[in-house]
């Protein structure tokens, strides 16, 4: 497993009915591009998060395919509709097979 991978997500706890929200996500990950060389001139193998998804109560908000050009500690910001109270699930897929998830509850008032 990649070291020190820690997802951070910002979702409001509450939203008024009919309003949309802005979500921000940040995950610590080195996003090794596969383009760099080590001190001995050997290529450091690619090791990135290659996909990020956000769903709400099982339905997709956004599904991002990520390439090595995404910066270290990947950041995303996007807007979501919240049709009812429920749970956002965030998932990051690592090249090495690891999957990191985070969930956030939100209430519609």
């Amino acid at each position: 497993m990649a070291e020190n991978v820690k997802p951070r997500v910002r979702v409001p706890r509450e939203v008024a009915a009919g309003e949309t929200i802005t979500i921000k996500t940040l995950i610590s990950h080195k996003m090794e591009s596969g383009q760099r060389k080590d001190g001995d001139g050997n290529v450091i193998p690619r090791s990135i998060i290659n996909r990020f998804t956000c769903t709400f109560n099982g339905e997709t908000v956004i599904d991002v395919q990520m390439e090595p050009a995404i910066s270290t500690n990947p950041f995303f910001e996007f807007d979501a509709a919240v049709p009812e109270s429920g749970t956002f699930e965030f998932t990051w897929y690592d090249d090495d097979g690891d999957v990191y998830t985070e969930t956030k509850e939100i209430a519609v008032s």
């Binding site: 390439e67 996007f78 807007d79």
Partner: peptide, 18 residues
Amino acid sequence: VATFNFGPLAAAQAGSTR
């Protein structure tokens, strides 16, 4: 760089990244 695929609950077909 990236491909953003928007689902039915995307409130805007928009996104930001670095």
